[in-house]
């Protein structure tokens, strides 16, 4: 079982996602802003990061993901957001967004668990 960090500014989504992952036996740490998110990742070294785009924050999820990668943190990042493709970001080309996978909210518990587990497997292989 793995340690998963969820960084999302929506407390309800944070709670629901944590509960789903905890029910599968994972340990979950959470942060509701990019600053705290950075701190828990640096401090607790999780196996996977679930990161919201957090559009309203000055340093949004994209910025945080880039910051992690620049600092050599290679933990898989699952970008989890309600920003749709309508906003003009092409998530297919991941050079811009250094994340391992991208899911659009809302997501079913099974899908969330599947995404998380397949990313963790890839990590093990590496």
């Amino acid at each position: 079982m793995a340690l998963i960090a969820i960084i999302d500014d929506d407390p309800d989504i944070l709670d629901a996602s944590s509960l789903v992952l905890k029910s599968k036996g994972h340990d979950v740490i959470t942060a509701n802003n990019p600053n705290d998110g950075y701190k828990i990742v640096k401090g607790k070294k999780p196996d996977l990061i679930i990161l919201d785009v957090m559009m309203d924050e000055p340093d949004d999820g994209f910025y945080l993901a880039q910051k992690f990668r620049k600092e050599g943190i290679t933990i898989p990042i699952l970008m989890y957001t309600s920003v749709s493709k309508a906003i003009g970001l092409d998530f297919g080309k991941s050079e811009m967004v250094p994340v391992d996978d991208f899911v659009e909210k809302p997501i079913s518990p099974e899908e969330l668990v599947n995404k998380v587990e397949s990313l963790l497997k890839v990590k093990e292989v590496k």
Binding site: D10, D12, I13, D15, A16, S17, L19, V20, S23, M55, S82, V83, S84, A86, I87, G88, E104, K105, P106, I107, S108, P109
Partner: peptide
């Protein structure tokens, strides 16, 4: 339009998250 979509989808995702948990037999 993008911002509206974002603002509408976030509460929807939250509600759906809670409903999923309530319905999930394993939780």
């Amino acid at each position: 339009v993008s911002m509206v979509a974002h603002e509408l989808k976030t509460p929807l995702a939250a509600v759906q998250g809670f409903l999923n948990i309530i319905m999930d037999q394993s939780i």
